[in-house]
């Protein structure tokens, strides 16, 4: 009974505050300027949906993504954000063409993403290839799951 109550509580907590697993968090990279930011799925979704403009420390957020058809982008959307690339595109188009928001910056490779994030304060992106997640300037695995 005790165990059952605990698992119900755990389930409720997960539903209210979706946790990022280590497998998910290790794909996120940010510029060192926002290394202290707490990360969770809700925050990541609102960042990649281009709804949130600033980090908790006030720094402007710059979102970097790969092209819609890039396998790493598709995997990131599905595995980490739990959305589909065509939904993301629809959301960005709605913001851009109604004047109520901006689109993320699009790069054509993970190398390019890594370089741009390392040199842009407040930037966030993702790396899905294991070989690229070794830290070289950009913060990988530095977001702290809540």
């Amino acid at each position: 009974m005790h165990n059952h109550a605990l698992s119900v509580m755990f389930f409720c907590a997960c539903a209210l505050f979706p946790l990022l697993s280590q497998a998910q968090i290790q794909h996120i990279i940010t510029n060192p300027s926002v290394a202290d930011q707490h990360m969770d799925v809700t925050l990541l979704r609102s960042i990649f949906a281009m709804k949130r403009r600033n980090w908790d420390n006030g720094e402007a957020i710059t979102v970097v993504v790969l092209k819609d058809t890039n396998p790493a982008h598709i995997e990131f959307c599905k595995q980490v954000l739990n959305v589909y690339p065509h939904q993301m595109r629809r959301m960005w188009d709605r913001l851009v063409y109604s004047g109520t928001g901006q689109a993320p910056i699009e790069v054509s490779s993970e190398e390019e993403m890594k370089l741009l994030i390392a040199t842009t304060p407040g930037a966030i992106g993702y790396l899905m290839s294991e070989s690229l997640t070794e830290n070289k300037g950009a913060n990988t695995s530095k977001g702290r799951p809540q």
Binding site: R90, D93, R94, Y97, S98, T100
Partner: peptide, 9 residues
């Protein structure tokens, strides 16, 4: 309605 002028949307 907001994006109706834009073919891609």
């Amino acid at each position: 309605n907001e994006t109706r002028s834009v073919p891609m949307t």
